Structures are given as structure tokens and as C-alpha cells.
Computed example of a mutant assay.
Amino acid sequence: MTRWATFDCFGTLVDWRHGIATGIELLFPGRGAELLEVYNRFEPQVQAEQPARRYREVLAESLRRTAAEAGLDLVPDDASVLGTGLPYWPVFADVRPALAGLRDAGWRLALLTNCDRDLIGETQRRLVVPIDAIVTAEDVGSYKPGHAHFSRFAESFDATRENWVHVAQSHFHDMVPAQALGIPRVWVNRHADPHDPAIADAVRPGLDDLVATVERVHAAR
């Protein structure tokens, strides 16, 4: 039986917070960390308003709203800074060893990502470890925490709770829908978020012991 470990990408494998804050810093020096928290409020709203909107435009529109709330003058063309920089956002140091370890243990790897195909293609090269399947927001016409990513993956690869573990950092985007769908799940709580840990089958601060964690969750399904 093929065993699948699926991942959210940005926030789980790639440092999304660093990428957003650094992009904002390029335009508004000294304001990146502050405006990251404002941006973080707007992005889910933008995604929910127009679920079929491409992620490049989600990034741009969320940045426009962030600048407007902060009373900052955003040059129109500068709204593209986040989409332009995304392929260079850093991969967390624990990611490549963890993914390689899962492959060595016989797991196939997939990404379920709130992103466009071209952007995840650029990011995938930086992961280095081969990825076997990808489902994007562009593919399904919606964003997590909607269920379409998970449903498309299950239908396309005959994935069920018997052969599937989902791994992600976002409680809102990933743990909540995975629980609702009965998918075994590992919450990678990189930022010590105070959300209910009982929603996950395992909670880890990073990916250092990912193989053992995924194997344990899979065995207890």
C-alpha cells in the first residue's frame, strides 16, 4: 500500500512569515515585523472573498490593504513585490532532512498548497527533495481551509485515513479541515500558537523527529 505524507508548504516548509516581512521591509524599511501582523489579518479575507483569485493577486491585494490601513503610500507596481520574491523565501533548516527521511522510510510526499502552479514550481526546486504530487489553489479554484485540496488529493491518489498523514503548521488552514475530514494529522506548531492542541493527533515544534511522529500517527489511525 502506498503511504502518503502531505504537507502545507508556506509556513510549514518555507518561512512564510520571514518572506512576507522581508518583502514589506523592501518597501517600508523598519516596518516589516509590525505590518506582517496586519497583513496576516487581510490575506484570509482576500482569499475568502474571491476563492478563484490567483495567489499572486492575493499577495498584492493583501499588501494594498495592509498599506492602506497603515496610512502608507504604496506605488501601484510595488504591490507585486511579494509574488516576485516568493520563489526565494527560505526553507526551514529542518525540512530537507525530514523529507529525505520520510522518502527513505517509504513514504511518498505531496504538497497541498494555497499557491499558484508557477510559484510552487519555483519553490519546489529549493526543497531539493523530490515531491511526488502537488495540489494548488489554482488547481481547485479555492483556498484552504476549504476542503477542495484534500478532496482532490484523495480522489486523485486513492488516499484515505488508512494510508495518509497530513503535516502542517497552520491550525486554521490545515488542522481544522483535516480534522473535519478525519485525516490523521501532525501539527507543526513552529510559533507556539495557543490554539487547541487536541485537534491534532501529534504536535511538534518542528520537523526534527518527523519520521517517528508520522509513523506513530499512522500506526494509531
Rank of each mutant, 00 (worst) to 15 (best):
E122H: 10
W164V: 13
K144P: 05
S170M: 08
S142Y: 04
A159C: 09
H171G: 05
V129L: 04
P145F: 09
Q124I: 12
E162Y: 11
H147G: 03
V128W: 12
H147T: 12
Q169M: 11
A148M: 01
W164I: 08
G141I: 03
P130Y: 07
A159G: 11
F172R: 14
A159Y: 07
V135Y: 11
Q124V: 13
I131L: 13
A159P: 05
V135T: 08
V140P: 10
W164E: 11
A168M: 08
D139F: 08
Q124C: 10
V140H: 13
F172C: 02
V165G: 00
R125L: 14
Y143R: 11
R126L: 12
V165P: 00
S142H: 04
F157E: 05
H147V: 01
S156A: 15
T123V: 15
S151W: 03
T123H: 01
F157V: 07
R161C: 12
F172S: 14
A168V: 04
P130E: 04
S156N: 05
E138Q: 15
S156L: 09
N163I: 03
E122T: 05
N163V: 05
E138W: 10
I131F: 07
T136M: 04
T160H: 15
E155H: 11
P130Q: 06
Q169H: 02
A137H: 06
D139V: 09
P145G: 07
I134P: 02
R152G: 00
E138D: 02
R161N: 11
H166E: 11
I131P: 03
V135S: 02
A154S: 14
V167H: 00
F150I: 01
L127E: 05
H147K: 06
